[in-house]
Design a protein around this nucleic acid. Structure first.
Lengths: 104, 104
DNA sequence: GTTAGTACTTTGTAATACAAAGTACTTTGC
DNA sequence: GCAAAGTACTTTGTATTACAAAGTACTAAC
């Protein structure tokens, strides 16, 4: 139970980026449009958040053309997976007892 | 498992405010200095975040003088408790499988 | 062949996070 | 007894952020 707010990684902590990382934590990879729909985020917003994650090295972004249309694939990196796990653990430590997830 | 990033309450989601709410979720109330030490946050930063929580109605702040020194007591409100619970549930829904907290 | 759509990126701006500086005291040296 | 240092905050300044609107580069439809 640590309440030091600095234990939580603010690259991951942003709402949109947390949603991206959560999605990728299970899916491992996704397409731009797929994420956009799942997270209900505007494309501009998604784009900037992806860039931040890419710059930090938490995701790997690869662009190609399929049927003459751009197709962006986003993959979580090793570093990203580790960071995400650390983030979740830190969060659990902060939330404390409230973490006991109730299964519906 | 919802990845819609808007389900998470951004009043609570800020790192410092999440730490405050987590602290108060178990302690129910705390003093300014107590929070400052527990969260390792600068006083200016704590002050502004508390104001936001107070404005939103998630905490109740009461100021008094004890031994001629100001003493600020922060208490979580009913609304705050509900919002926090909703926040944690939303977070769990987003994090998905990663939520299964491992007990050290 | 203009109009609409897809898949993005860049840009503009309002809001945020944070610490430094400020306020109002009180206690401690000397 | 009064300057200097401390306590408990609040206000202010600024760099960063979050977000959508506008822009780019195409293709498909009418």
């Amino acid at each position: 139970m640590s309440f030091d707010y600095r234990i939580i990684d603010d690259v991951i902590h942003s709402r949109v980026r947390l949603a991206i990382m959560s999605y990728l934590a299970t899916a491992h990879s996704a397409e731009f449009v797929e994420l956009k729909k799942a997270l209900k985020v505007s494309d501009g917003n998604l784009s900037t958040h992806l860039k931040k994650l890419e710059d930090t090295g938490y995701v790997i972004v690869s662009k190609q053309f399929v049927d003459n249309k751009p197709l962006t694939r986003i993959e979580i990196s090793r570093e990203g997976e580790t960071a995400f796990r650390t983030y979740v653990d830190g969060l659990a430590a902060m939330l404390g007892p409230a973490t006991n997830t109730k299964k519906t």
